[in-house]
Write a protein that binds this DNA or RNA. Structure first.
Lengths: 314, 314
DNA sequence: TTGAAAGCGCTAACAT
DNA sequence: ATGTTAGCGCTTTCAA
């Protein structure tokens, strides 16, 4: 027992015994068993992370931020991938909760009621990430997709674009893309503008798909002077189409993506995009989870809204 | 006890009691505690995954493959990110092992001896991934980076390139990039050719960096007719440079990357690259781990070499 | 086919 | 400051 206290730095242990215990532990190569500690103690040493995808660089970077934030905390991240499937999400959350994690980090605010209840009943900090348009079960951190969409619409209007198209995720899948779309559309309406073409992508959001749809949109209506894509991958495809066909981006047509991927920075044509603080969301979400763990913590804000940054070509 | 057996489908339980147990479990909303099961039983329900990076799409896709392969196995993946730091890798592996995972998936074959010993002593399946040039602690799955580099050199030579440059990861960091470089160089030597310029990247492998270094390399030596990049991100930057400066790729100069990122497929200039089966490596690594878990399994091959695919522009 | 006993390795609570 | 007791929720082993 004294050894347990000594190694954890809990309670009072004389400096002398502390030294002895540490030495002994070292000599026999003692390694604690967090499984047993988790089962016995109040807190478990695991933290659950549930994201819709990891092959998407955006969520991958969130994971990187989480790993980073967790460094030195003694907690291990357990991850699950929902593939944008609500059923799978519910199952995953359930099986994560069975491990009695110290906290849970989940992407999105718009889980079905049953899932929300599941989260609510778990008596641990729940940190919902990537979105702030809505009410969190517990706390959330991210940014407003609605505002991001609205802002981009404003920027394109300011550049003189009037005849716009949208190319992006099928709405059923990605609620955050839907919010951006809604924000964009709202702003257009305010300016008495509307979309002239909307192409929904049901498959993967790739440059190949973006290039193909861009070609289609522009052949359907050559007067289109701006295209808003639901993300940079699609937008890059659009840029490639323009390069290949000698279209002058920024002159003949404006292209706007979302996420601010590194690769858009040095693209030989100007692409508007919104830089999202995804890595920061990851690391901060961990901070919020850890803060929620403390007993008499001065509980922080329910909603942390980080800034996105509009990146416009010269 | 009978309930435990019934719910796990272990031992003999009369169909009648089985039904009763299941019903009761359903009614009271019983959810097992895998923490306790792991502590008690021989096997734990966790599987450790150690990768050098997740913000790199390549490893992100490996994680996706792992998540996929794990689906339905009842195991939860715990991940750790080393950031290409051997000390951190050792610490991470140690803390993962403390959880008594059912198996461990680790990127790379070239851990320092101390780390190898650590892995060896753990009496669980160790699956090393992404590389087959070397000896695994237990089993490994991936492909030969040496062969990939060699193959690309052959392809560039066949296209008439003679004066080549290399732009890529600092060797200290990435042993796999080093192996590709070595393979490439070997092939050049066989053809009595050598590199005329080598630029090592110490920072991140990004398109921005790739573009800048490409400019530098070509201004240092305008006669360079082929550049091998350690990965597609850098190579894409090179492609952007060529587009921006009206260089005819495939004519004036050949560009070769590595990984076969989706985004290279539709690039408006031809980029040679090597498509790597990273997602498959992820899912297969799980299969190998699970296979190693079975008692009297017909132990599979120590080394599974998957095929890469050389993608050359028309 | 079912049950009873013991213990996995720890920690919280209560002595001393 | 240190030790003792009990128990976290399961599974393995042995007995009925």
């Amino acid at each position: 027992m004294t050894a347990s206290r000594a190694l954890r730095g809990t309670g009072d242990v004389s400096p002398e015994t502390l030294k002895k215990v540490r030495l002994a532990a070292q000599q026999i190569g003692y390694v604690g068993n967090p499984l047993a500690a988790s089962l016995s103690g109040k807190r478990s040493g695991l933290i659950g992370v549930v994201v819709p995808s990891v092959s998407n660089i955006v969520f991958a970077e969130v994971l990187a931020g989480i790993a980073d934030g967790l460094d030195g905390s003694g907690l291990q991240p357990v991850f699950g991938v929902t593939d944008y499937d609500e059923t799978r999400e519910a199952e995953l959350i359930q099986s994560m909760l069975a491990w009695h994690p110290a906290a849970l980090i989940v992407a999105g605010l718009d889980q079905p009621d049953a899932t929300r209840n599941l989260l609510q009943r778990a008596d641990i900090p729940i940190v919902q990430i990537m979105d702030t348009d809505g009410d969190p079960v517990d706390v959330c951190i991210g940014f407003s997709h609605r505002d991001a969409g609205r802002e981009m619409a404003g920027a394109l209007l300011a550049r003189g674009a009037r005849r716009m198209a949208y190319i992006g995720s099928s709405h059923a899948l990605d609620t955050r893309a839907r919010k951006r779309f809604a924000g964009f559309e709202t702003r257009l309406n305010e300016a008495a503008q509307t979309f002239f073409d909307i192409q929904f992508v049901d498959g993967p959001s790739t440059a190949t798909v973006g290039r193909g749809l861009t070609e289609q949109v522009l052949s359907d209506d050559p007067a289109i002077d701006a295209i808003y894509y639901s993300n940079d991958d699609l937008a890059i495809g659009g840029a490639y189409h323009c390069i290949a066909h000698g279209l002058s981006v920024g002159q003949d047509i404006h292209l706007a993506g979302f996420n601010g991927l590194e690769i858009t920075k040095t693209l030989p044509v100007g692409l508007a995009t919104t830089l999202t603080p995804r890595r920061q969301i990851g690391s901060k979400s961990v901070e919020m989870a850890l803060a929620g763990l403390q007993k008499n913590a001065p509980l922080g804000p329910k909603r942390v809204t980080l800034q996105t940054q509009l990146l416009l070509p010269d």
